[in-house]
Structures are given as C-alpha cells and as structure tokens.
C-alpha cells in the first residue's frame, strides 16, 4: 500500500472510529463505514489539511469510497 493510502486510511479510521481492516478500496464512507453527510465533509477537510491540497466541492461529491479518495489525492499530488 502506498504512503498516501496509509495516511488516508489513518484519517478515516480516526474520524469514523472504524476498524482498519474494514477500510478496503471499495468501502463506501456512507454505506460501509457509518459516515453521514457531515462526516464526509469533515473527511474531505482532513484530506485537504493532511496533503496540502484543495478539493473542490464538485470533486468532493465524487469521493465516495476509500479508493476514490486515494486516487484523487494521488492524481492531485
């Protein structure tokens, strides 16, 4: 797993209070990891902070799974 994926996973585990092994590439924040819409806003903010990037609202809407997040951040770097 890439360094970026590790850091994203750490944020997800911390914010959503889920077990690390539940955070698979296809895991949906809302459907699989118990997040609500406010949690996902906070997650995106945490990604921005961690990686020093800006994630526009329309892009944020497409980040629905752990894999989506990792891919977006890898592309943005």
């Amino acid at each position: 797993m890439s360094d970026i994926a590790d850091r994203v996973k750490k944020i997800v585990v911390e914010h959503l209070g889920v077990e690390e092994d539940k955070v698979s590439d296809s895991a949906s924040f809302i459907d699989d990891l118990g997040a609500d819409s406010l949690d996902t806003v906070e997650l995106v903010m945490a990604f921005e902070e961690e990686f020093g990037i800006e994630i526009p609202d329309d892009a944020a809407e497409n980040i629905q799974t752990f894999g989506d997040a990792v891919k977006f951040i890898e592309d943005a770097q």
């Binding site: 406010l38 949690d39 806003v41 906070e42 903010m45 921005e48 902070e49 800006e54």
Partner: peptide
C-alpha cells in the same frame, strides 16, 4: 473559513 468543521454549529 474553509477549515470550519461541519460539526461546529450542531
């Protein structure tokens, strides 16, 4: 302002 938590108000 972009850093304000969605949980600030509630």
């Amino acid at each position: 302002p972009r850093r304000v938590s969605p949980f600030f108000i509630p």
